[in-house]
Write a protein that binds this DNA or RNA. Structure first.
Length: 191
DNA sequence: TATACGATCACCT
DNA sequence: GGTGATCGTATAC
């Protein structure tokens, strides 16, 4: 099973967001594999994108986004949740793809424990939920997905372009221009 | 030092 | 459809 390489993440952000659909996100914990196919992503691109954390410039928090592609940008939100992003594009340009949803594959029972045994479809259908399910927190921030044994993305089945749905990003507070950008990608018409 | 708020979720009506 | 939980970060003082 081959892992996605630096070249993959070094593409422009919209291409990465699109091509991540159908790939397999893998978390190894206690030598056990937890994984799921990526079914929902959102792109956040550059300081000009008002919805992107880097729109207020380079800070300790956003530093990772300015670094090399292929690293994990994980932030803490609403005092209780974490969200997982993968850094894209080139060094010095802040951009990332938010992983918003996965379809559980391996280690489902472990995942159910982490999530407090909710309904199957509620396990990982949101950025905060999937981080809780895969035990992803800030200790993994900045991790190199091309090198790490703990967190990485494997090449699985690339999504058929016809199965990809494109919509505006959700949950963001920003100006109308940023809100309207069709930078959210879903697999198989999932909403 | 102080304060306001967010790329969310779960639970309520 | 509405709201409270809960705290790191950015920004203002």
């Amino acid at each position: 099973m081959s892992r996605l390489t630096r070249d993959f993440y070094a593409q422009d952000t919209l291409s990465v967001a699109r091509e991540l659909l159908g790939q397999r996100l893998v978390r190894v914990i206690d030598k056990e594999r937890l994984s799921g196919l990526i079914v929902e992503t959102e792109a956040y691109i550059g300081e000009e994108d008002r919805a992107c954390h880097a729109s207020r410039g380079r800070t300790p928090r956003t530093e990772v986004m300015y670094g090399p592609p292929g690293h994990a940008y994980i932030y803490f939100i609403y005092g209780m949740y974490h969200c997982l992003n993968v850094v894209t594009d080139r060094v010095g340009f802040p951009a990332a793809v938010l992983i918003r949803g996965i379809q559980p594959q391996e280690g489902v029972e472990y995942v159910r424990q982490n999530r407090g045994f909710p309904l199957e479809r509620e396990l990982t259908n949101g950025p905060g939920k999937l981080c809780q399910a895969l035990a992803i927190d800030q200790s993994l921030n900045g991790l190199d997905l091309c090198q790490s044994a703990l967190l990485f993305i494997e090449e699985a089945r690339a999504a058929d372009p016809e199965d990809i749905e494109v919509t505006p990003r959700i949950g963001i507070r920003a100006d109308e221009v940023a809100k309207r950008r069709p930078w959210r990608f879903l697999l198989g018409g999932k909403v």
